[in-house]
Deep mutational scan, measured.
Amino acid sequence: ELREAFAKVDTDGNGYISFNELNDLFKAACLPLPGYRVREITENLMATGDLDQDGRISFDEFIKIFHGLKSTDVAKTFRKAINK
């Protein structure tokens, strides 16, 4: 299930999730959020999830993000976006 969610976000299939891919995910989900809020959520996920600070999120980092977000608003938003 997590591998499928990761693949859905990794639209270019390079094995990593970029800032733009995350941002595009939230935009495509048509969530009722202003653009600046989408950017804040994306920046927050990148800042906390990109553990090796290479500017992208690997599958291992994605798993840690996903499990670390349990019930936060960001987690709910992220799950809604993935499930669209």
Rank of each mutant, 00 (worst) to 15 (best):
P34I: 01
T11V: 13
E43C: 03
F66N: 02
Y16T: 05
A5E: 02
I41S: 02
K76A: 12
T11F: 02
G35P: 14
K70D: 11
K64P: 01
E40R: 04
T11D: 02
L31T: 12
K84W: 08
A5Q: 01
E4H: 15
A29F: 06
K27E: 12
K8T: 07
Y36R: 13
E21N: 05
L2Y: 04
T72H: 11
Q53F: 08
L31F: 12
L22W: 01
V74M: 12
A47L: 09
T48V: 08
N44Y: 10
D60Y: 04
D73R: 07
N20L: 06
M46P: 04
L25R: 00
M46Q: 14
L2C: 02
M46C: 09
D24T: 08
N83F: 08
F26K: 00
D50E: 15
K76H: 13
G68P: 05
A29K: 05
H67E: 15
E61S: 09
G55W: 03
I57N: 00
T77C: 09
R3V: 09
Q53H: 14
I63N: 12
I63D: 06
I17M: 01
S18D: 15
I17S: 00
T77K: 14
D50W: 05
G13P: 01
N14L: 05
T72C: 12
K70R: 10
L45W: 04
D52G: 14
Y16K: 04
A81G: 14
F59W: 06
F78R: 15
G49P: 05
K80C: 12
Q53S: 10
A81E: 14
H67I: 06
F26T: 01
I57M: 03
S58L: 01
A29E: 07
K70W: 04
Q53W: 05
G68C: 13
R56I: 04
L22Q: 00
F66Q: 02
N83R: 11
K27N: 07
C30P: 07
F26A: 04
A28K: 11
T77V: 09
V9A: 09
I63M: 13
D52K: 15
F59T: 02
F66S: 03
T72P: 12
A75W: 07
R3S: 03
L31Q: 10
A75V: 10
L33W: 13
A47C: 07
F78D: 15
A47Q: 13
E61C: 08
G68L: 12
K70Y: 08
Q53A: 11
A28F: 07
V74F: 09
G68K: 15
E43A: 08
S71Y: 11
P34H: 04
F59R: 02
L69Q: 10
S18L: 09
I41K: 02
C30V: 04
C30T: 08
A5I: 15
V74A: 13
F62A: 11
F6A: 01
D73L: 08
E43T: 07
A29T: 10
K8L: 12
R37F: 06
V9L: 10
D73K: 11
F6N: 00
D50Y: 03
Q53T: 11
G55A: 07
L25C: 05
F78C: 15
A28G: 05
F62S: 02
E43K: 10
G15K: 01
S18F: 06
G49Q: 10
F6R: 00
L22I: 07
A28D: 07
N20Y: 06
T77Q: 11
I41E: 03
F66G: 01
Y16A: 02
D73A: 10
P34R: 03
A81L: 05
E4T: 04
K64S: 06
Q53C: 13
D12N: 09
F26S: 01
I41T: 02
G13V: 00
R37D: 12
P34L: 03
D12M: 10
A81P: 15
K27H: 05
L33E: 11
R3E: 09
R79F: 08
F6L: 00
V38Y: 06
N20K: 11
G49K: 13
L25Y: 04
E4V: 02
E43L: 03
D54V: 09
R3L: 06
N20M: 07
A75R: 11
P32W: 03
T11I: 06
I41R: 02
N44H: 13
K76Q: 13
D52T: 14
L69P: 06
A29C: 15
G68F: 09
T42F: 05
L25I: 04
Y16M: 03
T72K: 13
R37A: 12
N20R: 09
I65K: 03
Y16Q: 03
F59I: 07
L69G: 05
L51F: 09
I41F: 08
E40A: 06
L33K: 04
D10N: 02
A81N: 15
T11Y: 03
T48W: 04
L51Q: 06
G35S: 13
F6P: 00
R39L: 05
T48M: 09
A29M: 14
T48K: 11
A75I: 07
S18P: 05
F62P: 00
F6S: 00
K76P: 14
K76T: 14
D10L: 01
F62E: 00
A28I: 13
K84P: 15
K76Y: 11
S71A: 13
L31Y: 10
L33V: 14
T42R: 09
D73F: 07
K8A: 06
V74W: 11
E21A: 05
Q53P: 13
F62Q: 00
F59Q: 04
A75Y: 07
F62R: 00
T77M: 07
D10R: 01
F66Y: 15
D52F: 05
K64A: 07
S18I: 01
D12K: 10
E43M: 06
M46R: 14
K70C: 12
E4R: 06
N83C: 11
D54A: 12
F62C: 14
A5T: 01
E21V: 02
L22A: 02
F78L: 10
A28W: 05
Y36G: 12
K27R: 10
G68D: 14
T77W: 07
D10V: 01
N23T: 13
I82V: 04
K64V: 02
G68S: 15
L69H: 06
K80W: 03
S71T: 10
F19I: 11
R39K: 13
V9C: 01
S71C: 10
K70T: 12
T72W: 06
N44V: 07
N20D: 14
F66A: 09
L22Y: 00
N44C: 08
L31V: 12
E40G: 03
P32H: 10
N20P: 05
F19E: 05
I41W: 03
A28P: 01
E61T: 11
A81S: 13
D52P: 11
D12I: 03
R37Y: 04
N23C: 07
Y16W: 09
T72V: 08
F78T: 15
A47Y: 04
L33T: 07
E61M: 10
Y36A: 14
A5C: 03
F59H: 02
N23M: 09
S71V: 08
S71N: 09
D54F: 05
N20V: 05
S18K: 14
L2T: 01
D24S: 06
A47W: 04
K76I: 04
G13D: 07
L25N: 01
L69M: 10
F66M: 13
I65F: 05
Y16H: 06
N44W: 07
A81I: 08
K80Y: 07
P34E: 09
F59M: 06
E61Y: 02
I65W: 03
E4S: 07
K80A: 11
H67R: 09
T11W: 02
G68H: 15
D24R: 06
K76E: 14
T48H: 09
T42L: 11
D73E: 13
A75E: 13
G49F: 07
A28T: 07
I17D: 00
F26H: 01
L33C: 08
D24F: 02
E21L: 03
K76M: 12
N23F: 08
T11S: 10
L25G: 00
A29N: 05
D50S: 12
F26Y: 02
K8C: 04
R79P: 15
D52S: 13
Q53L: 08
G68N: 13
N20T: 13
P34T: 04
I63F: 06
N44Q: 15
L31G: 09
K80N: 10
L45Y: 12
M46I: 14
A5M: 14
D52A: 15
N44T: 13
T72E: 13
D52R: 14
T72I: 08
D24E: 13
E43D: 14
K80F: 04
M46A: 13
D54S: 12
R37M: 11
A47K: 14
P34C: 04
T11R: 11
T42P: 01
T77Y: 06
G55I: 04
V38H: 04
